[in-house]
Nucleic acid binder design. Structure first.
Length: 258
DNA sequence: ATGGTCGTTGCACGA
């Protein structure tokens, strides 16, 4: 089972690229972030014609997350089932695809450590932790993927000095991610590759991609029964090349049969 | 030199 995640930075602009990427990589599940579309503008029929059912939660101009699946979409769910207020931003969808509980997440950016949005980010991560702890078990097959806007450790940052005092690397964010891992999830890309310099996002400005100045912030987290079957994982840097790319590359994980 | 680009929208702001 091939599960992929890709922050496309506007599905309206990137639909052609997503269509050809699906044809090239044939994922069973593709989780998309930053569709920047309202639900009635989501191109479900286009994906259906390619063999993918879909579930989208959007709000229009910003955010927006989706799951595409050619192995079924059951029990779709939006946001967090923690009894709290609905998230005002469209950042999380869940569905069961081929027996795996899948989440497509767009974790808040945080903007800066002294910004209210950073507190929203930390609260959002805590709601994610509670949602997982109360609706899933580490012994279930759960795959939580997306743009985490957190570089898990220093290997995932091109220049630590540039990020001193910034979001994406702060102790509190990394600790929040660490709690998800401690609960029972594996960062499957890091499980296969230990070296630094392997990134999934590069700033559009200043030729960052060609200078290899990026961050690894797009993650595939899997519970033990799934992670034990990991066969391959890849960041598709080729998708960051050419005309009008997203600033993120897709991340793929292949899990063998049960 | 504290910039740079791209997406949204609308002539600024978020990432």
């Amino acid at each position: 089972m091939r599960i992929a995640t890709w922050n496309v930075n506007s599905l309206g602009v990137r639909l052609g690229r997503v269509e050809s990427w699906l044809a090239d990589f044939q994922p069973d599940v593709l989780c998309i972030q930053e569709t920047k579309l309202a639900d009635d503008a989501f191109p479900a029929l286009t994906f259906q014609a390619l063999g993918y059912e879909s579930f989208h939660h959007g709000q229009g101009q910003w955010n927006g997350v989706a799951i595409l699946s050619r192995v079924g979409i059951e029990d779709p769910q939006v946001g967090f089932a923690d009894g709290g207020d609905a998230d005002p931003e469209a950042r999380a969808v869940w569905a069961t695809c081929g027996g795996v509980r899948v989440a497509s997440l767009y974790v808040p950016n945080g903007r800066s450590l002294d910004n209210d949005h950073y507190q929203y980010k930390l609260r959002w991560l805590e709601r994610l932790r509670v949602h997982l702890a109360t609706s899933c078990a580490p012994t279930d097959e759960v795959c939580v993927v997306g743009d985490f806007n957190i570089a898990p450790d220093d290997r995932d940052v091109w220049d630590l000095a540039k990020f001193e005092g910034a979001t994406h690397v702060s102790q509190a964010e990394r600790a929040a991610l660490g709690e998800l891992l401690q609960w029972g999830m594996t960062d499957v890309f890091r499980a296969k590759y230990v070296e630094d310099g392997l990134y999934s996002w590069w700033d559009y400005r200043g030729g960052s991609f060609h200078k290899r100045q990026g961050l690894r912030i797009d993650l595939v987290l899997a519970t033990a029964p799934l992670a034990a079957r990991l066969e391959h994982t890849l960041i598709d840097r080729s998708a960051r090349k050419g005309e009008t790319p997203s600033d993120h590359a897709p991340v793929i994980a292949d899990f063998g049969p049960r």
